[in-house]
């Protein structure tokens, strides 16, 4: 029952994302505008670009994940479906929250991971570091979605969410950014990135266990 409800929600979310194809391309377009603008700003020197590549790709991925957050729960709040999550009773609200966050990650996180090799090439990231970059994105972008979803749920009841959203997300993603870029930088310099990736995984586990709880509580307060 619960699983059926979750897959139904996931299917609906993905169908909506596909229908608004242009909108779901936004994170990618945003990612690449940052990746293209940076060399234009700091100059095309391969050494400089290679040294800032991990940070740039990660900051771009982070900002890209912020784009869709404003609309993560708001349409459902406005047409009343969000309330159905609590009174419908077909599935625990927490499960639906997790589903929604998962579809957000599929739409915003996965494209960024898939196109990361291209971005890495454009910024001359050493090819040895590419697997680590992909892995760090694979572990880290779900955390961005979870944390972003929490911020989105917290600001749901306000009418000027977007500025607040970024100020709420920023402190929460500091550790992710540090460990992820640390991993890629270590790999680029020929060191082992294991410790960084381990810590990043720990962050992911923490976020997966705690963020949906807080998100569900915040949503519930906001629809009361």
């Amino acid at each position: 029952m619960t699983v059926a409800r979750m897959t139904a929600l996931l299917r609906r979310d993905l169908r909506l994302a596909l229908r608004h194809g242009g909108e779901s391309l936004m994170p990618l377009i945003f990612l690449f505008s940052v990746i293209i603008l940076v060399p234009l700003g700091v100059g095309p020197g391969p050494n400089l670009l290679a040294s800032i590549a991990p940070g740039m790709i990660w900051v771009a991925a982070l900002l890209a994940s912020l784009l869709a957050l404003e609309q993560l729960f708001r349409p459902d709040l406005e047409d009343g479906t969000l309330e159905q999550w609590w009174v419908g009773g077909t599935a625990p609200p927490g499960a639906l929250v997790v589903t929604r966050l998962f579809s957000h990650w599929l739409v915003t996180g996965v494209p960024v991971i898939l196109f990361a090799p291209l971005a890495a090439q454009m910024l001359y990231l050493p090819s040895d570091a590419l697997p680590t970059l992909m892995l760090s994105l694979l572990i880290g972008t779900p955390v961005l979605s979870l944390v972003g979803g929490l911020a989105s749920a917290l600001t749901l009841g306000t009418n000027r969410g977007s500025v607040l959203l970024s100020i709420l997300v920023f402190p929460m993603v500091v550790p992710v950014l540090i460990f992820a870029t640390g991993a890629v930088t270590a790999a680029a310099e020929g060191f082992s990135a294991r410790a960084h990736l381990g810590l990043l995984t720990a962050l992911l586990i923490l976020a997966v266990t705690l963020a949906p709880l807080a998100t569900t509580a915040a949503l519930r307060l906001n629809i009361e």
Partner: peptide
């Protein structure tokens, strides 16, 4: 700190704002 203050201030319903900010 600024995020907490901003979140609280952004709600029209002060009580709801306080409770949401408490989660934060």
């Amino acid at each position: 700190y600024l995020g907490i203050m901003g979140l609280y201030a952004a709600f029209e319903d002060r009580r709801k704002g306080a409770r949401v900010a408490c989660i934060l």
